[in-house]
Nucleic acid binder design. Structure first.
Lengths: 234, 234
DNA sequence: TAAAAATGGCTCACGAATGGATCATTATGA
DNA sequence: TCATAATGATCCATTCGTGAGCCATTTTTA
C-alpha cells in the first residue's frame, strides 16, 4: 500500500468530514447555535490529523457557517453567508468589461507591479521572463505571440509574490480570452506593432534583471500606453 | 528479437503515452484541472524511463495542455476555463489573502482611482461622499465606523465609473469582512487613530470636490500608508 | 475557591510523494 | 567507430498530511 493511497484516502476523509458537517447543518441535525463535535472527536471519527481537520473546517468558519470558541467548542453559525452569489456576479461582470476599462485597470496595476517585481523577482522568475521573450519572438503566428505576450505579463505580476494581485490579474486576463478581444487583437496586432512590443518587452525585462524599479515601472507603463492606443484607436 | 525491435518499441511507447494523455483529455476522462497520473506511475505503466517520459510530456506542458507542480502532481491545463469553477476558486483564494497583500493592492488601485474620480465624480457621488463622512464621524462604535469608512472608499472607486475596477475592489473589500480582519481592526482602530482617519478622509473628499486629481491621489495614498502601518505594525 | 480537564489556536519538525534537473552508463544505428 | 537516444541513479525544492507539543480560555471537578 503506497503512500499515494494514504494521501488519496486523506482527501476522501476531508470530503467526508465536510459533507458530514454541512449535511448536519443543512438537514437541521444541528440547529444554529448548537454545539458541534469537538475537533479531537472529529479527528478520531474520520482518522484525520487535527491540523488537516482544522484546515478543512477553516472555510466553514470564514464563511460564518460555524463559529469556534477557545475552551468552549465549535457551534453552528447564526448568520447566513452571502459571498457565494457575489462571487458569481463579480466574474460575470468582469467578462463583460470593455477594453477601455481593462486597459485602465491594467495601467493601475502593472506598472506598480513591475516596480515591486524589480525588487522581488527571483532567479526562476527572471528565467521565465527570458523564456517568454524568446518564445514570443520565435512565435509563428499572432495567437502564439499573444500567448507568450500574456505569459510575460503574468510572470511579471507573479514575481511580486502577492497572491491577491496575481488572482485579480488572472481574473482580468480572463477577459482577454473572450471572442471579442480575439477579433480586436487580430485587427490591431500587426507585424510592425509586434516588433515594437518585443522591444518594449525586452526593455522591461532588462529593467527587472537590473533591479531598477523606476525603469521597470516607466517602461511597462509606456508599453501599456502604446497597447491601449493601438486597441482603442488612440 | 532484434535490436531494432527494441528501439521501435521504445518509440511506440512514447507514442502510446502521448496518445493516452491526449485521448484522455480529448474524451473528457480528465477534465481541465483534474490530476493526471504521476510521472512515476506513467513510467511504470508504459515501461519508459522517467527522463524519456518527461521529455515526451514537455511539449504538452509548453503548449499549456497540461500543467505540472512540484510536490503536487500534473494536471490538465485550463486554457478554456469554465467560468463558474474559476470564479469560485478566485473568490476562495481572495478570502485567504493576507492583510499585507490586500494593502499592497489597495495602494495600487485607490490613489489612481481617486485621481480619475476627481475628474469623473458627479453630484450624486459627492453627496454620497459627504454622507459617508458625516456618518463615520457620528459612528458610536468601531464596527459602525468601519462600515462607513468602507463605504467611503467604495464610493470613491465607484466615482471612476469603471465597472471592472468597481468589481475588483468589491472583491478585495469582501476580504475585509472576514473574521480575521475584524479582530485585526478591533486591535488597531483606536479612538486616536479614528480621528486621524477622519481628517484624512475629509481631505480626500475635499480634493475630489475641488476637482484636484493630484491632491486626491496624494491624500488617499497618504491615508492608505497610515492604515497599512497601523494594520501591519509599521 | 482552586485545581484539573477540555477545547480551540498555533507552531514546529518529520516523512512521503511529486516534479525539476543533472550525470554516467548503456544500447542503437549510421 | 561514433554520435545519438534511452536508461538508471541521484539530488533538490515544494507540497501535503501527520504527530507532538505548548498556550489561552473555558468548563468541570475536587
Amino acid at each position: 500500500m503506497t503512500l499515494e493511497n494514504i494521501r488519496d484516502r486523506a482527501a476522501e476523509r476531508v470530503d467526508a468530514v465536510l459533507a458530514f458537517i454541512e449535511r448536519g447543518i443543512a438537514e437541521g441535525t444541528w440547529q444554529p447555535g448548537d454545539k458541534l463535535p469537538t475537533e479531537r472527536e472529529l479527528e478520531r471519527m474520520f482518522g484525520l490529523s487535527r491540523n488537516t481537520l482544522r484546515k478543512t473546517l477553516k472555510p466553514l468558519e470564514d464563511s460564518g457557517r460555524i463559529v469556534r470558541h477557545v475552551g468552549r467548542g465549535s457551534f453552528v453559525g447564526t448568520t447566513k453567508p452571502a459571498s457565494a452569489p457575489e462571487g458569481e456576479s463579480l466574474l460575470r461582470r468582469i467578462v463583460g468589461a470593455s477594453p477601455a476599462e481593462v486597459m485602465e485597470v491594467r495601467l493601475m496595476l502593472e506598472p506598480h507591479a513591475a516596480e515591486l517585481a524589480a525588487g522581488r523577482a527571483n532567479a526562476e522568475d527572471l528565467r521565465l521572463l527570458e523564456e517568454c521573450l524568446a518564445r514570443s519572438e520565435a512565435a509563428g503566428d499572432v495567437p502564439e505571440f499573444e500567448h507568450w505576450d500574456g505569459r510575460l505579463h503574468v510572470t511579471i505580476v507573479g514575481a511580486t509574490k502577492n497572491g491577491l494581485l496575481m488572482d485579480l490579474y488572472e481574473a482580468i486576463n480572463d477577459v482577454r480570452r473572450q471572442a471579442e478581444w480575439g477579433k480586436l487583437k487580430a485587427r490591431t496586432v500587426t507585424t510592425e506593432r509586434r516588433k515594437v512590443y518585443m522591444e518594449q518587452h525586452r526593455r522591461i525585462v532588462t529593467a527587472l534583471r537590473d533591479r531598477d524599479p523606476d525603469e521597470a515601472r516607466r517602461s511597462l507603463r509606456e508599453h501599456l500606453e502604446v497597447v491601449r492606443a493601438n486597441l482603442l484607436g488612440g
